[in-house]
Design a protein around this nucleic acid. Sequence first.
DNA 1: GAGGCGTGGTT
DNA 2: TAACCAAGCCT
Length: 370
Amino acid sequence: MPAPSATALLDWYDVHARRLPWRVPPEDRALGVLPDPYRVWLSEVMLQQTTVAAVKSYFLDFLARWPTLPALAAAPRDDVMAAWAGLGYYSRARNLKACAEAVARDHGGRFPDTVEGLAALPGIGPYTAAAIAAIAFDVPAAVVDGNVERVVARLFALETPLPDVKPEIRRLTATLTPQQRPGDFAQAMMDLGATICTPKRPACALCPWSAPCLARRRGDAETLPRRRAKAERPTRYGVAFVARRHDDALLVRRRPDKGLLGGMLEVPGGDWREGAPPEAAPPFPADWKTAGEVEHTFTHFHLVLSVKMAEVGDRPPPAGCFWLDAAAVAGEALPSVMRKVVEAATDRPARRQSRHARNVLAPKRTIFDR
DNA sequence: GAGGCGTGGTT
DNA sequence: TAACCAAGCCT
């Protein structure tokens, strides 16, 4: 049984590295080229619990709009929130802005090059600090994300369930991490987990570490890592009121900064509660008609919204609300669940206009396509 | 430590 | 198709 070697993985990475917009490929890193820490940080924050496919267009949009850290630090917060709309986990956008300001203010506009310095910044935890240090500065930090957890749990056939086994995985990852090319090694681990050592049906025949992999030898790689059973996801019900002015402007309000969809826009509505659909008072009296139902699944609950719609004349907005011009809807900080609500009520796409590839290459069905 | 926090792709 | 889950962080 050979020990897993960093060299075997790096040799594989030299041939099979994914080409990604935020990445410096291994042949360029071999010449001493390191990526811009700003781009590494931006991509890593966007990639937290988010797929590469979802991140790509957002990363390019952000980079085109705010090419440098000072540019992002100087940007209006609401612009950043609006640009983040649709990507989810909106506290990341708030922390992104706060982090940019902190680096500009406290670090002369340059990211710290140590794990400790990075981890002290908003929105940068143990994973992201290690990833930036390794990828942007070639610090031999142990970079442990969900991919690495899976690879290492299988490599050493770790039976202890997550998250209890995390410290053991971190220790083993540190043992594997080489002093030479730690940035490439970290990216290679994640590429291996994303393309070969996948959650289901891992392609062990193509794996550079198939020989030393204990789980492959036992034949149960697909069952690792173990996880503790997760709690059941409840369903909550609510009402959403879409008031549409004659010029197509929509009545919206901004959610509180903290908590679910913090800082994002929504249409007025009542509380979201488990049990029977609640009665909710409309923002003002009008001829409210039922426009259908919208379903949306959040991390910890499923939501069913009854959508009410009214076409109304010009009038001042109720307290806490404002009229959003029809032309501005696409560029605003509307989370996906609210885009669904607006589409259900208006039979008109409320999607972001900048999602060229998504719209052109893979148009999503709306409830009106059924 | 455990729960809150989005979304869309995959199986 | 409904469940699963993806480069986690914060409190």
